[in-house]
Design a protein around this nucleic acid. Sequence first.
DNA 1: GTAATAGTTATCGTATACGATTTCGTACTC
DNA 2: GAGTACGAAATCGTATACGATAACTATTAC
Lengths: 233, 233
Amino acid sequence: MTETVTAAGSKSEQAYTAVKARIVDGTYSPGYRLVLAKIAEDLGVSVVPVREAIRRLEAEGLVKFERNVGATVSGIDPTEYLYTMQTLSIVEGAATALSAPLIGEADIARARAVNEEMRECLQHFDPVRFTALNQDFHSVLFEHCPNPHILDLVHRGWNRLASLRSSTFRFVPGRAHDSVDEHEAILKLIETGAGADQIEMAARHHRSATLDAYLAHTPAAVQATPNHQPSER
Amino acid sequence: MTETVTAAGSKSEQAYTAVKARIVDGTYSPGYRLVLAKIAEDLGVSVVPVREAIRRLEAEGLVKFERNVGATVSGIDPTEYLYTMQTLSIVEGAATALSAPLIGEADIARARAVNEEMRECLQHFDPVRFTALNQDFHSVLFEHCPNPHILDLVHRGWNRLASLRSSTFRFVPGRAHDSVDEHEAILKLIETGAGADQIEMAARHHRSATLDAYLAHTPAAVQATPNHQPSER
DNA sequence: GTAATAGTTATCGTATACGATTTCGTACTC
DNA sequence: GAGTACGAAATCGTATACGATAACTATTAC
């Protein structure tokens, strides 16, 4: 297969997927100016499908749009981070609780394996890998969520955060260690068939604890630098 | 001002607002086929802005889109209703809890007045008015939510439900009476400065109780009738 | 030297046009 | 009479073109 199947037939869909991917993987970092014509050229399509794609991304909150000015990748500032994390703590908590009854032993084992790998990561201090594993871990826990709306909200939240990945934004020194322990605690709760409330709260607090750690570590909300705005104009 | 300011300059925005309004107010009922050309003509614009509007509505879940086939207003079936209500119970519960500390006496008074009006409505049995007041009541409780993302999710949930309003879908005989009482209970909690957890759970259960009532009242999930599909083709 | 203004350029917004795809209806065959 | 195949109509998908808006720059007046 060609490196990019570029997937779904529609050009509009291609544009959506492509731009979204570039945002998530950091090629288009927050604040990046999305020029329709340029993107269209890059993708070998006209601007119309690109506009539609941008519109969808706007509705998802991944880009900001200003009339007659253009679109920029949204998301950097600490306030946004706070809001996103808080929202995610709520929907992910719920998703995890709803998933719990559907999580089998195999899933638990897989999650635990991932968590052990994370524990190892703590030694070598590899934030990038740690973050990736973290997503894997939580995916196992919430992917069984039977309510697609909630699941979708969780995915959107993670996507928002993913765009911050390149900056070491999310990585707070002391936090990683606690995080791994909390993971194990959550797994135990699920294994023992704890109540939905209990699981929800554990998952929620696990996330809000990360947020709190960030806030404590960044006393006066660091002014997020709109890093490397391309000056190719 | 002309009867419709038609608001925000952009045609695309106009289309978005107009179509959304028609969906919410029931002019376009669930299952309704959204033909681009026709909408464009109705609004006096070309199809391009309409496409963008539809795309945004799709991302919000108000319409379903099928490649090369077209868009239809989504939402009817009982499963969707269940998912939406469940999601709303979670996000609205959270929004209400987050709002609580910011709700003043004036707000409480207003909400209580609305609730009393609802109580009166029970006598005359006016479901439409009751539903409208219900939204007013809850709006007072969650509109102060400081997290715009969560607030947005709540609005989206209500919008989804609004499109079901025309059918008497949501109205379950016994439920309305309990509902009014629960409203009062929630107000009391807020007044007395109850804990966020307590308020959240009360608000959440208030909503999920409506869902449960619906499920109990509709034993074998009624096959939602794709009502009055226009045959103007 | 600074501020205001006019002109230029980049970019967006929308209309129109045409090709692509699906769906529906009709006719033909078995 | 039922099923299939062909054709026409409806609708979507995308490209191109042009007008509109905002940002940027240079010039001029004070």
